[in-house]
Design a protein around this nucleic acid. Structure first.
Length: 135
DNA sequence: AGCGTGACAAGGT
DNA sequence: GACCTTGCCACGC
C-alpha cells in the first residue's frame, strides 16, 4: 500500500517519485533504500534508489543523509569522506550514530514517533552520563 | 547485444 | 551477528 494518497500521483517519473519520497523523510529519522523504493511505489527496486542518489550531488537539496542500508549501516565505506559527512548531518539532527550505524528500531521512518509527530526530535538529549567518582 | 558493476535486499548457512 | 547466493534494475563498455 502506498503511504500517502496525496503522493501516489505525484509523478509518473520513477526518479521524481524517488526524490519526492526521500524529501519526505522526516527530520530526525532514517529510511533504507528498500523502504524508499517501496514507498515510491517501486517495490524491489532498492538499487534504483541507489543509482538516483548516485547522480545526486552531495550539496543537492535532498536529505540523502537520511538514507541508509537496511542494516542501519552507511552505504559508504567506513571512514570515507562522504560517510563522515553523512554522520555529521545525522547527528546534527539528533540521530544517534554508534559504531558507524544507526538503530533502525529507534530512528527508522515509522518507528520514530518523535520525528513523525514533531518533525524534529527536539531533545534527544545527551544521555546523562553517570558521574564517575574521581577517586 | 552481452557482460560486469553498483550509495541494495532477503534468505539461507 | 558475519558471510554467501540470488534477485533486482539501470548504465556503460
Amino acid at each position: 500500500m502506498l503511504p500517502c494518497a496525496a503522493m501516489s500521483r505525484q509523478s509518473d517519473d520513477p526518479i521524481a517519485r524517488i526524490r519526492a519520497t526521500i524529501a519526505a523523510i522526516p527530520r530526525g529519522s532514517v529510511a533504507s533504500y528498500g523502504e524508499i523504493a517501496e514507498r515510491a511505489g517501486l517495490p524491489g527496486r532498492a538499487r534504483m534508489v541507489g543509482r538516483v542518489l548516485g547522480d545526486t550531488p552531495a550539496d543537492a537539496p535532498l536529505p540523502w543523509h537520511r538514507v541508509l542500508r537496511a542494516s542501519g549501516e552507511f552505504a559508504f565505506p567506513r571512514g570515507s569522506k562522504p560517510a563522515r559527512e553523512q554522520q555529521r548531518r545525522l547527528q546534527a539532527e539528533g540521530v544517534e550514530v554508534t559504531n558507524g550505524r544507526v538503530s533502525i528500531g529507534r530512528f527508522g521512518w515509522g518507528r520514530n514517533l518523535d520525528a513523525e509527530l514533531w518533525g524534529a526530535p527536539g531533545p534527544i538529549p545527551p544521555p546523562a552520563r553517570k558521574r564517575r567518582t574521581p577517586a
